[in-house]
Design a protein around this nucleic acid. Structure first.
Lengths: 146, 146
DNA sequence: CGGGATCCTGTATGATACTG
DNA sequence: CAGTATCATACAGGATCCCG
């Protein structure tokens, strides 16, 4: 209530409908590679080459990178410029829209880094608690050596 | 304002490494259901019941919802409270951390709604351009009709 | 170098049924 | 109601090979 956004609860309800167009947009951003590519391009501040992105994003395959870039290009978040030089040279740059989206994905990336430690701690904690032998019952051994 | 740890380009580089812990966090948020659940809880402003979430998030299966909530709980973003009433009643609430994360995912959801029209237009445009007949080549297909 | 096209497998996700 | 357990499968994603 304290936050003043232009979207109303009614808009949100529509968002949750599986046929809401915005869902396809969310799903574009809510995918690790799409998110990383956008964040990387935004942080880099200038166009990047295909291989540059590939090298930066550890673990991404050529297929996934191509696929991701295509999807982003298709939705108007990045532009693809081909320089017909001898060794082909293709650069990807963010559009205005892409920069905006990049701000959001960048924020997630940054937040994740800043809270990774805390979250991983909570995770270990949870796992430990779940690993406690299932034996709360009975006055038998307080500590079932199991 | 939260303690803003100045992120440097070097930090980012680490982010892109597949073994960077933050990646697991990103992947928690960068998934449509996780994103929607967080956003929904945040927008709702108060705890929600399992079935409430299920009804709201059109298309989510009980399995996915459970799985998503578990993951969020594990990472300390939501708390799970069970009221041992006759018909079981379980409520999910955001933790402080969850509220923060929710701000980010909410932002993505909101942005997606606000730009869906524009993005879908770009998408149609792209598809149309791609659909241009692969060259109404004149006489005798120059290329092997495969 | 920057992909396109294939092939192939693991996992994510869905559908269904059962339980406390 | 709020799950857990199972089974079935679609699709994401990895590995390869090839081409302009």
């Amino acid at each position: 209530m304290e936050t003043k956004v232009s979207t109303t609860p009614e808009d949100w309800a529509a968002t949750y409908r599986r046929d809401c167009p915005s869902r396809t947009v969310v799903e574009l951003l809510a995918n690790k590679w799409g998110l990383y590519v956008l964040a990387a391009l935004r942080r880099h501040g200038r166009p990047m080459r295909f291989s540059e992105l590939r090298r930066l994003l550890d673990g991404i395959t050529q297929k996934m990178l191509t696929q991701t870039l295509r999807a982003l290009e298709r939705d108007g978040l990045v532009t693809r410029t081909v320089y017909p030089t001898v060794p082909p040279r293709v650069e990807y740059a963010l559009t205005e829209l892409g920069v905006e989206a990049g701000r959001l994905t960048d924020a997630i990336g940054t937040w994740s880094v800043e809270h990774a430690r805390q979250i991983l701690a909570a995770r270990r904690d949870f796992d430990d608690r779940a690993a406690i032998p299932p034996q709360p019952v009975g006055p038998t051994g307080t500590g079932p050596a199991r």
